[in-house]
């Protein structure tokens, strides 16, 4: 039920942001389409924690702030590597182990790794992520587990 309500709110906000026309007829059509989509989604039975992870919402801003900082820092590192040239890079590939309990946490971690330039998650299997890095030192930073620890704080149930 809570997930249905959250979906209705999300869809309505999305519709309002995209429309910009607030005549009764158009608004009515919007309401109809929102409820039609909710009806379809419930019928398809795809409404669950994974599609509406609202329990994570209050803990996400803190993680995002940290992630944005990481992304900016590693962007500058990669740009430096590009400008200095191929001698400055030392690509490496290795396993990064995470102790995350949920699939959601593992996906957040793998996507965060890919989102920060300089490291790409190549494969994800049972909590072991194969990571390719532009410089091996970045890989050691990941293996020290700071990012994994922060994701664990987000997924904490």
């Amino acid at each position: 039920m809570r997930q249905t309500i959250s979906l209705i709110i999300t869809l309505s906000l999305f519709w309002l942001m995209n429309s910009g026309m607030y005549k009764p007829l158009i608004l009515g059509l919007g309401v109809v389409s929102v409820f039609f989509v909710v009806f379809m989604v419930r019928r398809m039975d795809v409404l669950d924690f994974e599609s509406q992870p609202m329990e994570l919402l209050p803990r996400l801003p803190r993680y995002y702030a940290w992630l944005i900082k990481e992304i900016v820092v590693s962007n500058f590192k990669v740009v430096k590597h590009i400008l200095v040239g191929n001698k400055s890079i030392a690509p490496a590939i290795s396993l990064v182990h995470s102790d995350l309990k949920t699939d959601m946490g593992e996906v957040i971690l793998a996507n965060s790794i890919t989102l920060t330039p300089g490291t790409v998650a190549v494969e994800l299997e049972d909590g072991d992520i194969t990571v390719h890095a532009l410089h091996g030192a970045d890989l050691e930073g990941l293996q020290s587990g700071e990012m994994s620890r922060r994701v664990a704080q987000v997924e904490r149930t």
């Binding site: 992304i71 900016v72 962007n75 990669v78 740009v79 590597h81 590009i82 400008l83 040239g85 191929n86 890079i89 690509p91 590939i93 890919t114 989102l115 920060t116 330039p117 300089g118 490291t119 790409v120 190549v122 390719h132 532009l134």
Partner: peptide, 28 residues
Amino acid sequence: LCLAGGIGLIRFPDFYTRMHASGVTETL
């Protein structure tokens, strides 16, 4: 930054390293 990403795409030696260069254009 887009330009830097493009230069990296040409400059880096193999497929995986080039992906990192495109990461700059994708994010920042």
